[in-house]
Each structure stands twice: as C-alpha cells, then as structure tokens.
Design a protein around this nucleic acid. Sequence first.
DNA 1: CGCAGATTTGAATGCAATCAACACTGGTGG
DNA 2: CCACCAGTGTTGATTGCATTCAAATCTGCG
Lengths: 258, 258
Amino acid sequence: VTEAFASLQPVQDVGTAHRLRLIRKLESIAKISPEERQAVLALPLRVREYGDAADIVREGESPPDSCLLLEGFLCRYKMSAGGRRQILSFHIPGDIPDLQSLFLDVMDHSLGTLAPSRVAFIPHVTIHAMLRDFPNLAAVFWRETLIDAAIFREWLTSAGRRTAHQRVAHVLCEVYVRLRAVGLHDGAGFNMPATQAELSDALGLSAVHVNRVLQDLRRSGLIRSHGKRIEIVDWPRLQQAGAFDPTYLHLHQGRPDV
Amino acid sequence: VTEAFASLQPVQDVGTAHRLRLIRKLESIAKISPEERQAVLALPLRVREYGDAADIVREGESPPDSCLLLEGFLCRYKMSAGGRRQILSFHIPGDIPDLQSLFLDVMDHSLGTLAPSRVAFIPHVTIHAMLRDFPNLAAVFWRETLIDAAIFREWLTSAGRRTAHQRVAHVLCEVYVRLRAVGLHDGAGFNMPATQAELSDALGLSAVHVNRVLQDLRRSGLIRSHGKRIEIVDWPRLQQAGAFDPTYLHLHQGRPDV
DNA sequence: CGCAGATTTGAATGCAATCAACACTGGTGG
DNA sequence: CCACCAGTGTTGATTGCATTCAAATCTGCG
C-alpha cells in the first residue's frame, strides 16, 4: 500500500554477505568457476529498500536494469480483468526476479514486495558485458530463466488440475525446498511472509478456502504454524498431499559443457 | 494412441521451405542478420513423422537434441496425480518446443502431437556450436525461451483468475495471433487441430464445459466453426471476451544491442 | 488501549464437474 | 457402396467444491 519506504536514498556499499547470496543461489543450480565467481562478485549494485506491498517494477514499464533480492520476499503478479490478482511466482533472497527484462524490454507483469525488502539493481548493460566476457555464466543465467519457466509450468499444473488441498501443500513444499537449497530455511520450518490472501492469489483460490485448507493440514498433523513461521511436521505426507516432485526445480545439477 | 507412424525412417532432405519456417518464426520476435540466417539454414535436420497423439519426448528423459516442428501441431503436457492431464502449451510450425532441454537435462514434462506432425531434430551440440559462433543468435534463442515463459505466465493467469468464457476466448485469440505472426493463419480463421477435450486439458476445464462455452461464443456471433477450422467473426469482441492483450507474446520487436 | 490488518467461522450461492445418454462425423472394411 | 465403429461433439440432470458474503475474533503494534 505505502511506497514511502521506497524513497530512501540509494546506498552504494553492499556487504559481501549479500553478494554471496547470489553466488549461493547460482551454485544451487550450476557449477561456477573461481573467475566467474569473481565476475559476479564484482557486479555494481545499487541498493534500495522497500516497505511492504510496494511495487518495484510495473507491467508496461521498460526497466534499464534487473534486480537482485538481498533480503525480504517478492512476488511477480498480473492483474486480470475484474481486478483479480494472479501471483505468478514467489522470490527469495538470491533470486533475480526480472532477469527476463534483459531480453524482453516491456514488462508483461509487475514485481512487488510481500514483505519489507532490500533489493539491488544491476544495469542490463553491465550484465550483458559480463555474459559476453564469461559465456559459461551466460549459460548459468539462461539456465536460471529456464528454471523460472519450469516453475511456471508447475504452477500452471497446480492451478489447472490440482485440488485446493494439493495446491496448498504443493506450494509449501516448493517454498521450503527452495529456501533450503540456499540455506535460508530454519530447521524443519521456514518463514513464510505471504498472508493467506496472498497465498490465495498465488494458488487461484479464495482466501477463505485457503484458510480452511491450512486448518485441515494442521489438524492432520502435516504442518504447524505460529505467526508467519511454518513448521513441517510430516514431510513425507505433506509431499504426498501436494503430489510434490522437486524435479522441476532442477537443483544441484552440473553445468553442461558449452 | 498409435505410435506406429513414428517408426518411419528418418529422412535426410528437408525442403528449404521448411527451413524458412524457423527463420520466419525467429524474425517474428527479433531481427536476424544475413549471416545468422545462413547459420540457421545450415543446421543439420533429422526429420521424423509422427501420427496423432504420439509422444515425442517424455517426462524424465534426457534428449540429446531439441526439435523443430515443421508441420502439424504439438503440445507440452504434464500428468498430475490422479491421471489428469494439464496441457502447458500449444506449438505451431516454426516453434522449437523443447529448446529448454539445451540447459535442463531432465525433462520435467512431456511433448506430444495433437495432429499428425513432421518434426526435425537438431543435436544440442550443434546448437551450442552455432550459438557460440553467433552470440546474437544466442540472444534470439534465449529471447525465444523467455517468450515461452511469458506464455506460461499468461496461461497461469487464465487458469487461476479467469472465468471459463474468458479462458476459451483468450486461447483462441492467442493461437490466432501466433499463427498470423508466421503467416500460417487462413484469412480471418485458422486450423485448430485440438479437440474440445484437449482444449479443456489446456484450460483446466472439463470437456463438457468447453463445449458449452464454445456454443455460447458461436451464438453470440464471436466465432464460427466448421470441423477443425475456426473463423473469427468479431475480433474486437472476442478479444474483449478473453481480456486478451498480445503484449505478452512480445512480437515484432527489435533485438537489443548485445 | 485502540486500531488496522489478518485470520477464523458460518451460511448461502454458484460455477463448473460429473454422470449418463445420444447424435454426429469421418474413416475402414466387407 | 454402404454398414459399421470409434472418436468427437452435444445435451440434460445432478452433484459438489470452492466462492461469496457477512460478521466475529485474533494479533501485532503505535
């Protein structure tokens, strides 16, 4: 709602810890050489802070840079005729949610926060230069956008052919696995900043129904939740309830020779 | 059902007309230089014919090549728990439906025919070599996979937040615009090989409901159809009925300087 | 404490699914 | 040439999952 926080001054210095988040992410989907690692760490970052429910890029715009999420929780979304929102993806620290704008100049959807977030902007020209100098990094970034597409396919399958129970269980499994892949989980649980209304916009359900399904999952002993934290009590059964198969996340695979 | 046709001998000679189909497609989304054009035309193609309802690649496999659709109609799909099918995308001649397998070695979905089709296989190693020699072509192919993802986003929005009427109208608009972009439309109409049952698997609806919605669209004077041919009678109203905005197809845009 | 956002609950409604026939169509073989 | 047949399209009746509407808690926070 409020974009007041977004008006803070851009900050120039970013801790190495934040930069390593991107490395960690890239390494979760491909192998990175020391030189490539250096190149990524050398990327110039312009950092901005956003409050809750703030838009970072809007449908129709042509942003000159892509952004890297450092801290917080983002989503991409579209508004459909009738003012209904469809959330297309969730994004965790280390993700580059609008990498596609590198080659698609007009945004066909919006990018916004679901929690107060710290975001780093990287000019397209800089990324292009890096990818030209390090062709293997181009392969890694391309692969990243392909995994992005694979997740859309999975969500489409959920929205089209899975029951409400399956959808809710499935998305919880996905977020947990993705957080775990970059070490941002919390034991058997994780921090889930999205509200039930936001979850419903992601799953194509009503908020009321999401609420009821979550209660079912709790009653059945699959999950537990206090506030924003979700704890997975019975992973095998949750996975089964959501028909969750992590193959589509394409994690931990070697890079093909390019 | 039958895969008998698939066992035909691979053919080596492909008419230039078929090769130009890919050029036409690429030119619908980016600019191609004469040298790049030559490189694409020089790609070695191994052609195979498939019957109706045949699988070309299956979920879980790791194909050594990508395929280019020369003639016919393909779809990508997933089977969800419970044996329900979700069709993820339709593909028309000129498309390379499994380009993502260039960097994602395990298929997370299947690719099959919705009509008798002629398909050309291109080894990944060959494509990689071409992309290395022509970096701008790499940008074009990358862009192609990004548009692929944009279409998934749009379909997800349909499945999640659009009514049955909107979904049906929307997909008809999309197929028409995509066919028209490569000159494969037929005046104000086009050939739609998918059955109503297949349409329903793409839209996340039942076949019965798709049938009723199509009747509504015909009664309302938005479309007409004889057999597999669909004619668009009132484009503005069809577009409005489907809340269709072609931006997400990212057609006819120049290539950014790389 | 008070307020706004979020979650929860209950009741009624509705869109689309399901079930079950029936009609049509194009292709095949007798 | 026609009968057959499987696949496709069409129709009607019923069911049900999820939505909508409305209101009551709960929670965090200034």
